[in-house]
Nucleic acid binder design. Structure first.
Lengths: 264, 264
DNA sequence: GATATCAAGTCCTATATAGGAATAAAGAGA
DNA sequence: TCTCTTTATTCCTATATAGGACTTGATATC
């Protein structure tokens, strides 16, 4: 009796063989993840990459376009291809911005650290980071917006990866953007986020710090920060008390969600 | 004396001549905007498009990839290229989702219209739509989440474009997703959004409808819906009273902000 | 009638090649 | 010294071509 031919499941990517342009993208991405290239570095020219990768020019170009799309590299006509640095948004938080109601001008913000500690408690952050992690650095900050109103921000970092931070002084950390800081010092850029929101009573430590009535309602906004390949790196929570100030939600991806006419 | 050669400003796209692949993208996009192709339609095959557009296959493919990126078309191996329909997310609002705290399951929602009127007042919506529009259809809805808690939603539509809706009965409009409805009936898909948020006292008509105490604080969430080429089509505002329920923020772009491994 | 095979249509990947355009640095000329 | 020109490097666009892979429907076979 003859061997019955294998019936290939429709829709399956036969064998999981990845396209070459994709393999190249991943290879370059891995190199960046590993720190073989760091933000600001120039990659080899595309024709040279083509030789190294044993691919044609067009294939390498396509791979690089994917990385541009992801916000991992930037390309400049005539200059080269560069690993994207965490570009600091002057005086702004990174996942959202403040503006006056109806206005267009962004409002400047200032941070002040009100507490750093290492904790073992679990909470929403532990399910975000997964079960392997059990020590967290917990940093609480007071965020002032345009000298007018305050927001409370707290960040949870896995202690194993960022242990150096636990030893830093408040003076060192004051005023820094953690998004930039982690990207530059730890090669852990935030590429994407997971966000949830609710209107709830603010916890006592927050109402005390913000100097609003005990039990005041506010927006409780949780932001999980993900890096390359969706690896979790930060979990933060923002407490926003009532105010006229309106928060503009910015895109969650580093690949600056370009206006449509720029997508091409 | 000889004519001084024109000094070209560095960085200028000499003459504004657009790349061919981009011109093709825009041509197809225009056809879709004009309704020459409607959601679900299959576009001509890529090699046929190449002939029509007097371009090579690779160029057409690149143009089509841009449109996929924008969420305007979908391509299926072996089947064809299709204009993206507004895919209904069963029982879910379109700009955000509800889930229980810490849970992963999305909660179903139900709409009930509590008021339709045509108004002339101006407000945040008028600056969003621009000054030319002065009549708006104002639709207020009660949104029930999982039989457990309620949210208030209101939508402002420019009356000139959507006048038919003003004449529709509540029965017709009850339960529909306006995002899908506008996409299908008016060829006005929401491609992108502008969002702002604040914690503020809920207005009386909202507290009455939601049956919460007068003056209760809540999240006031404004969402401006934009279509192709960032043309404004809807302005809506969601009032979220306090609750344990946590809202998951979904990406604002129709181009399903794919997880990183799918970007390639 | 059910199943297997085949063929056409379509998208997907990849290559080799050509010339254009932006940038930066080296060199020529006043 | 300053300005202009040239050159090398680099990215950008576009073409023509080849073969592979998925889907669908028609055809042949049992």
């Amino acid at each position: 009796m003859t061997q019955k031919p294998l019936r290939v499941v429709p829709g399956s990517k036969s064998g999981g063989a990845k396209a070459k342009h994709r393999r190249i993208s991943e290879e370059i991405l891995s190199a960046i993840e590993d720190g073989r290239w760091v933000p600001g570095d120039r990659l080899p020219a595309e024709d040279q990459l083509a030789v190294e990768m044993k691919a044609s020019l067009g294939t390498v170009q396509r791979a690089l376009r994917s990385l541009v799309q992801m916000g991992v590299v930037e390309r400049h006509h005539g200059r080269g291809t560069f690993v994207t640095g965490a570009r600091a948004q002057e005086g702004q938080l990174q996942h959202f911005r403040f503006m006056a109601e109806g206005g267009t001008r962004l409002l400047p913000v200032y941070f002040k650290i009100v507490g750093i500690e290492t904790i073992r408690e679990s909470g929403p952050w532990s399910s975000f980071f997964g079960e392997r992690e059990d020590n967290y650095i917990h940093i609480q900050r007071l965020v002032n917006v345009n000298d007018e109103f305050d927001v409370f921000s707290e960040i949870y970092l896995p202690a194993s990866r960022f242990s150096e931070i636990a030893g830093m002084s408040e003076a060192t950390l004051n005023g820094v953007s953690f998004r930039d800081f982690l990207a530059e010092r730890f090669n852990a850029p935030t590429i994407n986020t997971q966000q949830t929101m609710a209107c709830q009573p603010l916890p006592p430590r927050v109402t005390r710090t913000l100097n609003v009535p005990h039990g005041q309602y506010g927006i409780v906004w949780s932001i999980g920060g993900l890096s390359y390949r969706n690896a979790p790196i930060t979990w933060q929570r923002i407490f926003v008390p009532p105010s006229d100030r309106v928060i503009e939600i910015v895109p969650t991806s580093a690949a600056e969600q370009s206006p449509l006419q720029e997508v091409f």
